[in-house]
Amino acid sequence: MGNPIISMKNLSKAYHGEKAVDNVNLEIDKGEFFGLLGPNGAGKSTVIKMLTTIIHPTEGTATIHGHDIIEERDAVRSCIGVVFQDSVLDRKLTGRENLDFHARLYGLRGDMRRERIEEVLELVELKDKADVLVERYSGGMQRRLAIARGLMHHPGVLFLDEPTLGLDAQSRRHIWKYVKELNLREDITIVLTTHYMEEADQLCERVAIIDRGRIVALDTPENLKGLIGADTIVMHIQSGGEILLQSLSFFPWIASSEVSNGKILLRVDDAQSRIPQVVIEACMNRAIVSHVGIIEPTLEDVFLKLTGRTLHECEDSGN
């Protein structure tokens, strides 16, 4: 571990005696793209709100850049940028006016402020819409402007709480592109919360899975998926399945195999490099294969394994 830019110690928040966040201990490194993954109501946003000084922890605390989030709130506020889940802009102001207002609150003055506004507008490709009232912006444009606003004061840490919630696939990819670039080019530590598995998998270097206010797993997406173990090779068989399965059973690298509905499912490590051998074996046994595919484990599977529930079950019952 390098030197952590954020460290949480026993961070907890209770509402009416019920713990929304329960003893979270986490360290996030400088420059890291970190993900908090969990269903709605798992406590992700509550963690973000505590770290951004909007609400106070019931127990424990955290430091950002060495500043305590309870004792040194102003110092913390100066070095973080936030895009809340329901980030709000003033709809009666134009994009540029919105940025100008916030830049002033962050203490940016004169030419420095005007230059920075142009820079961030350029970054999120909203320059040509800068003088249009925000009420005429699409959802994706509003989210981009909110990200620009969060970046204005060159924060060391950027919190993105469900940054793509409610956006269409195209806007989502757009935003992924921006934040990835930010992380790489401007060396900003990014803490992202999401309940989209794909998002955490695509963007984050490390992911903490959070459920009912507790961290249940913490690792790289690859290692987390490793918890589930192997990939699965799926072969759709038209005939000769039984014989093929028998001869495959001699390969030591097949962890397990089963047949169901005309499909053979093989659990193997590194499925891509095993497919040729499996296909050759099928030819030699004169089995007729119509389709071969790989199912990689997803973070969804990891969540299921760790909590015994799928993300969607949590959302149906939890909220």
């Binding site: 000084t53 102003d74 809340f84 980030s87 709000v88 916030h102 609150l105």
Partner: peptide, 14 residues
Amino acid sequence: EMGFLKEIMVTPSS
């Protein structure tokens, strides 16, 4: 209620 106050309160503004 709209959520804009939160955006103000998260700045270091006194």
